[in-house]
C-alpha cells in the first residue's frame, strides 16, 4: 500500500513536470524540428539574445511587472492595514469586493477593463496595461498581508500608541517590519502574475506596446519553434526562483 502511494505521487509529479522537463531538454537540442536528439547547443538562446523585438517585449514585461507589483504592494499593504486596524462602514463591502476581484475569471476582468478604458477614451498601451495589472495583483497582496497581520498581537500597536507614537510612526516601526515578509512575498507573486498574464494583457494593450506573454502567444500559434523552447525554459527558471523566494519568505515563522 505504501509503495502504491509513492508510485501514485511520483506519477502525478511526473505529469506536472515531465512536459516542462522535455521542453527544457529540447531547448538545448540542435535539431530544428525537435523530433530527435541531435547534439547539444546554446544556439537557440543565442538567437533569443539577438532578437530585438523579443528583447523589447521582455523589457516591457519586466517594467510593467516591477511597477505593477510595487503599486499593488503600496496600495494593498496600506489597505490591509486599514482593514485590519479599523472598523468602518463598508468594511465588509470592501472585503467582499476584494474577494470578488480575486475569484472573478480573468476574461471577465479583461472585458470590463477594456470597456472602461474605451469609455474613458484612453489609448491602449503602457498606462492601461499598468493599471490593469495593478488591479489584478492588488487583492493578492492585500489578502496575503492581511492574513499575516491577523496572526499578530494587536496590543503591540496599542502599546506603541500609549508610548506616544503617531499612526505613521506606529506603521513604520511596528506594522511594516512585522508585515514585511508578506509584503515581499506579495511583491514577488504579483511580479510573476504580471509576467505570466495572457488574458488581461491580450485585451488591454495596444499594438505599440508588446509584452512577452503575447509575443509568445503569437509565436506559439504559428507553430513549434526551437526559440520558444529556450524562452519557455528561461521563463520557467524565473518562476522557479521567484516562487521559491516567496515560499521561503512566507514559511519563515514570525519572530
Amino acid at each position: 500500500m505504501e509503495r502504491l502511494k509513492s508510485i501514485y505521487l511520483v506519477l502525478l509529479f511526473g505529469f506536472l513536470y515531465l512536459p516542462m522537463a522535455v521542453l527544457i531538454l529540447y531547448s538545448f537540442n540542435a535539431s530544428k524540428y525537435g523530433t530527435h536528439w541531435d547534439s547539444f547547443t546554446l544556439g537557440w538562446y543565442r538567437s533569443l539574445a539577438t532578437d530585438a523585438s523579443l528583447i523589447g517585449a521582455a523589457t516591457h514585461s519586466l517594467l510593467v511587472g516591477c511597477l505593477a507589483a510595487s503599486m499593488a504592494c503600496f496600495i494593498g499593504t496600506l489597505g490591509a492595514v486599514g482593514i485590519y486596524r479599523y472598523r468602518f462602514k463598508g468594511r465588509i463591502v470592501l472585503q467582499g469586493l476584494l474577494y470578488v476581484t480575486l475569484m472573478s475569471p480573468e476574461i471577465v476582468m479583461a472585458v470590463s477593463l477594456l470597456v472602461l478604458f474605451i469609455a474613458l477614451h484612453m489609448e491602449l498601451g503602457f498606462c492601461t496595461l499598468l493599471l490593469s495589472h495593478t488591479t489584478f495583483c492588488l487583492p493578492f497582496v492585500t489578502v496575503t498581508v492581511l492574513s499575516r497581520l491577523d496572526g499578530f498581537d494587536r496590543h503591540l500597536i496599542e502599546a506603541a500608541a500609549d508610548l506616544g507614537a503617531g499612526e505613521w510612526q506606529a506603521m513604520r516601526q511596528i506594522v511594516l517590519p512585522l508585515a514585511m515578509p508578506a509584503i515581499a512575498a506579495g511583491w514577488l507573486l504579483s511580479f510573476t502574475l504580471s509576467l505570466d498574464d495572457v488574458v488581461v494583457s491580450f485585451f488591454v494593450t495596444g499594438p505599440e506596446f508588446e509584452v512577452l506573454p503575447l509575443k509568445i502567444y503569437s509565436m506559439v500559434r504559428l507553430g513549434v519553434k526551437p526559440e520558444v523552447n529556450a524562452l519557455a525554459a528561461l521563463l520557467f527558471a524565473v518562476s522557479l526562483l521567484v516562487v521559491s523566494g516567496a515560499q521561503y519568505l512566507l514559511q519563515r515563522k514570525p519572530k
Partner: peptide, 29 residues
C-alpha cells in the same frame, strides 16, 4: 513543505508556457 512547494511551482509558472509544453509533447512528432 518540499512536496507542497513542488505543487506550488507549476501553479505559478506561466500557463501559456505550460500549454505550449503540452503541445510539443502531443505533437505529431
Amino acid at each position: 513543505p518540499v512536496l507542497l512547494t513542488l505543487v506550488i511551482i507549476p501553479f505559478w509558472t506561466n500557463s501559456l508556457v505550460r500549454t505550449y509544453a503540452i503541445r510539443s509533447l502531443l505533437a505529431a512528432r
